[in-house]
């Protein structure tokens, strides 16, 4: 290949009548970009491969029971992922329930309602929020947010709902410490809002203004424009943005470890402590040996799988919406 192109180069130098553009750069560029793309695949395959290899002893030892068992006893080398899986899904769900409406609100405000002079400061602030390291969120969550949350939310709410069926269980804090599944979900919501909000804002910005203007032209209110023009137009892309946020919420480690309460128990209340896959790994990886290390690797595999399933589900959803 190289020889060929060199020959061509030489020949083109000899006959300077009609120079075809040199292809060498084209080739190099193509190979380089292909290499970059392949590199991602190789790294991903490498990580997945080594995780599976590392987790294999645990999967072999416990079989399918590894996922469904809720025991995590390092002293007796018994491991099960159930509590962590449920904790991961619950915290991520809480983050979405809180974070998505707020993000949509931010995006709609910025693109539809915001006076021009305020647009830039608000947008910049939101992007800055995305740049805050997660350990900062964790520390802030534990030292500042948790005490306030305990005092002004957990204690009053627990008093209010005590004795009511279902809600009295879900929102009752037996120990109002401020940390727990709900706190972790709220911190995660704050962390995903900047991502979801700025992508959604870009999506709204890309909708042809003529659609909006015609809607206003026939006398629609702002709400009607948002509800019947913007959201249907942006629909699928918003789901994409949400999935990106969900991906981050599922895998977030440091911030969650600080505020989730780190208990290996399933409890009915959102105020109670729990644990997530990522927090469990962060907590125990340093001092793990033998089967415990394998079990943590296996947890990593499961997190991989959960994230993968979520992304595939999002793709399918988008494909279905598109087909309609």
């Amino acid at each position: 290949m190289v020889a060929l192109s060199q020959e061509r180069l030489v020949s083109s130098m000899r006959t300077p009548v009609r120079r075809s553009p040199p292809r060498t750069f084209d080739h190099v560029f193509r190979i380089a970009s292909l290499g970059s793309a392949l590199l991602v695949l190789i790294v991903l395959a490498g990580i997945l491969g080594s995780m599976i290899y590392g987790g294999l002893p645990a999967f072999r030892e416990f079989g399918f029971g590894f996922i469904t068992s809720s025991v995590w006893d390092v002293q007796r080398d018994q491991y099960g992922a159930w509590v962590a899986v449920i904790g991961t899904l619950t915290t991520a769900l809480v983050a979405l329930v809180i974070g998505v409406p707020v993000s949509l609100g931010i995006a709609i405000f910025l693109t539809q309602l915001c006076p021009p002079w305020l647009k830039r400061p608000v947008a910049t602030t939101i992007e800055l929020l995305a740049a805050v390291p997660s350990i900062i969120y964790g520390m802030w969550g534990l030292f500042v947010f948790a005490p306030l949350f305990a005092r002004f939310v957990q204690i009053p709410v627990s008093k209010l709902v005590e004795g009511i069926p279902i809600i009295g269980t879900i929102l009752y804090a037996s120990v109002p410490s401020g940390v727990g599944i709900l706190t972790a979900g709220i911190i995660l919501a704050v962390m995903i809002i900047p991502f979801v909000a700025s992508i959604t804002r870009d999506i709204f910005d890309q909708i042809p203004p003529v659609l909006r203007e015609s809607a206003y032209g026939i006398g629609c209110t702002t709400w009607e424009v948002v509800r019947h023009v913007l959201l249907p137009q942006a629909g699928v892309s918003i789901i994409g943005a949400i999935m990106l946020g969900l991906g981050r919420a599922l895998g977030e480690t440091m911030a969650v470890t600080f505020v989730v309460g780190n208990a290996n128990r399933l409890s009915a209340s959102l105020f109670d402590p729990g644990s997530t896959i990522a927090s469990r790994i962060a907590n125990e990886f340093n001092e793990a040996l033998g089967l415990q290390l394998n079990a943590l690797m296996a947890l990593g595999c499961i997190l991989f799988l959960v994230t993968f399933i979520v992304l595939v589900a999002a793709r399918l959803l988008i494909a279905r919406v598109n087909a309609r």
Binding site: Q75, S177, F258, N262
Partner: peptide, 27 residues
């Protein structure tokens, strides 16, 4: 039992000395 991490029957977990101290002070 005894070890670097055990299965705690009740309570809350804090990360590091600072995490434990923060929870004890707050609760």
């Amino acid at each position: 039992g005894a070890g670097a991490s055990v299965q705690w029957p009740i309570g809350q977990g804090g990360k590091g000395n600072e995490g434990v101290a923060a929870l004890v002070k707050q609760v």
